[in-house]
Amino acid sequence: MRTCAESLSEYGLRALGREFGATLLPKGADISLCDQIVLIGSGMIWNLYFAVLAVALGFGLATAVALAKASPIRALRAPANAFIFVFRGSPLFIQFFFAYEAFQQLPRVTGTLDLGLVELSVSTSWLTRAWLGALIVLFLNTSAYTAEIFYGALRSVPRGDLEAADAYGLSGWARFRRIVWPTMLRLAWPSYTNEAIFLFHATTLVFFSGFPAWQQSGDALYYASYFAQQTFNPFVAYPIIAAYFILATLGIIALYGAINRRLNRHLPREARPKLRYRPQFIR
């Protein structure tokens, strides 16, 4: 039986691939509690990877889509409304399967890039890997939900703030950057925090999607399911993954709470809105 130090050495980065740890996973009677804690924690690297990149990239796209939806120009407003409707109107689980099948239908090589001295082939096979294909789905999904949140905040910017900006001679980009943008973020931040938490929890759906784990480089739920099958005892592995997610959720709440206090630092302490986590049971 391995010690906890040996488990950490062999499986600490195992989720990144076989070259980062033991070639084979522990089986049967060789599985210890430390093995389960370490390997499931290793799988959390992928959940954090999906969540951090999807939220970070989605923040920028969501802002652009929200501005497009609020635009008086129909050519901008219509695509933004369609994008939000499609990704908010269909289940995330179905989006994973649809994207995987669509990526599978793409030819392995879509073309070549002639650089003069060398000619590069542009391959699309990497789109069927979870590290990119699933990330694209999560990125688009959270962008749509966040765009709707930001749009609602844009519509809620107090008219008095806009009139004050006009009185100071602010217009165009300066008005947006100094008045509209910070006010929008301040109003949207509590709801945006809940979206970030939900997106993090939704990364577990990658395990059930069509995107396969490559060389056993799976997420936390992949290893929790593996241990439940090997030990015939789901009451150890699944509580471990639940504990990891609870700790990560507390970290998200603390981080977003600090940003919320920063956004509202100009308000009196008693008037500053406090973050409240409201879990979404149906999406």
Rank of each mutant, 00 (worst) to 15 (best):
M1L: 14
M1H: 14
T3H: 06
A5N: 10
S7C: 10
L8V: 07
S9G: 13
E10N: 13
Y11K: 07
G12A: 02
L13R: 00
L16S: 07
R18T: 11
E19S: 15
F20Y: 13
G21M: 04
A22G: 12
T23R: 14
L25H: 05
Q36T: 09
S42C: 07
S42K: 05
Y49W: 13
A51S: 15
A51C: 14
V55C: 11
V55W: 13
V55G: 05
L57W: 11
G58V: 09
F59M: 13
L61E: 05
S71V: 05
S71Y: 03
P72A: 04
P72D: 06
P72V: 01
P72E: 00
R74F: 05
R74C: 04
A82K: 10
F83S: 06
I84E: 03
F87H: 00
R88F: 05
G89M: 03
P91T: 06
F96E: 00
F97E: 08
F98R: 07
Y100L: 10
A102V: 15
Q104K: 14
Q104D: 11
Q105H: 14
L106N: 06
G111K: 05
V118M: 10
S121L: 12
S121Y: 12
V122E: 10
T124E: 02
W126L: 11
R129V: 13
A130C: 07
W131A: 10
W131Q: 12
L132R: 03
L132I: 10
A134R: 01
L135R: 08
L135V: 09
L138R: 11
T142V: 15
Y145F: 10
A147D: 03
E148A: 12
Y151M: 02
Y151V: 02
R155W: 04
V157W: 01
P158I: 08
L162G: 00
L162H: 03
E163V: 03
E163I: 06
A165S: 08
D166G: 14
D166T: 15
Y168H: 12
G169Q: 00
L170E: 08
G172H: 02
G172V: 07
W173K: 14
W173S: 11
W181R: 10
P182E: 00
T183Q: 11
A188E: 01
A188Y: 02
A188F: 03
T193W: 01
E195Q: 12
A196M: 11
F198T: 14
A202M: 13
A202K: 08
T204K: 13
L205I: 04
F207H: 09
F207G: 06
F211K: 07
W214D: 15
G218E: 05
G218C: 02
D219Y: 01
Y223I: 08
S225P: 07
F227A: 03
N233G: 06
P234R: 06
V236E: 02
P239Q: 00
I240C: 00
I241A: 04
A242F: 09
A243D: 00
Y244I: 00
G251D: 01
I253D: 03
Y256H: 15
I259Y: 11
R262L: 15
N264F: 03
R265D: 12
R265G: 12
P268A: 06
R269I: 12
E270H: 08
A271G: 01
A271E: 09
Y277T: 13
P279K: 07
F281G: 12
I282Y: 08
R283V: 15
